[in-house]
């Protein structure tokens, strides 16, 4: 899988830390707001909001929180909303396994990552054991 690059010409809309469970709600509301601003429909808004909610929860549950970067940029000629989640958690040992339906390392249902991937237009993940995980999702209209 390709390395996630931070050298982009995207417009940064904000960077926020996830520390408490309340942050998850607060920041996903922000994401919904930005999706609305990007004139996405209600279904698209719900999709991206749910997708980032999954990612935020993963960070909160497994990595003791992390940072969220919300950006807007041009992807293949489309105006995209880009959300990047960065944590310094334990990392994911087997990405292929984590991306398969029904697998869970904790108490979840096992649909978090693969489900998130189905909800967005582009999904990138990069993880190193004991170093952390970066997940980037993109949604366009």
């Amino acid at each position: 899988m390709n390395e996630i690059s931070f050298d982009n010409n995207w417009e940064q809309l904000g960077k926020y830390p996830i520390v408490t469970e309340h942050d998850i709600v607060k920041i996903r509301q922000l994401v919904r707001h930005h999706a609305k601003e990007a004139r996405m429909g209600i279904v698209e808004q719900t999709r991206i909001t749910t997708a980032v909610s999954e990612l935020f929860r993963n960070m909160f549950n497994y990595a003791e929180g992390g940072d969220v970067l919300i950006e807007r940029g041009n992807i293949d000629g489309k105006n995209a909303l880009i959300v990047t989640c960065i944590d310094q958690g334990p990392g994911i040992e087997d990405l292929e396994l984590a991306m398969s339906d029904g697998y869970t390392s904790g108490m979840g249902m096992g649909y978090g990552l693969p489900g998130t991937k189905r909800l967005v237009d582009r999904f990138e993940i990069q993880s190193e054991k004991d170093k952390g995980t970066i997940v980037r999702v993109m949604k366009w209209r």
Binding site: I42, Q45, T46, R47, T50, D101, Y111, L119
Partner: peptide
């Protein structure tokens, strides 16, 4: 369950 949430649940695979 709203139509948007219904679609989201299906895509999540729940």
């Amino acid at each position: 369950i709203s139509p948007a949430i219904a679609q989201t649940i299906v895509h999540l695979g729940i």
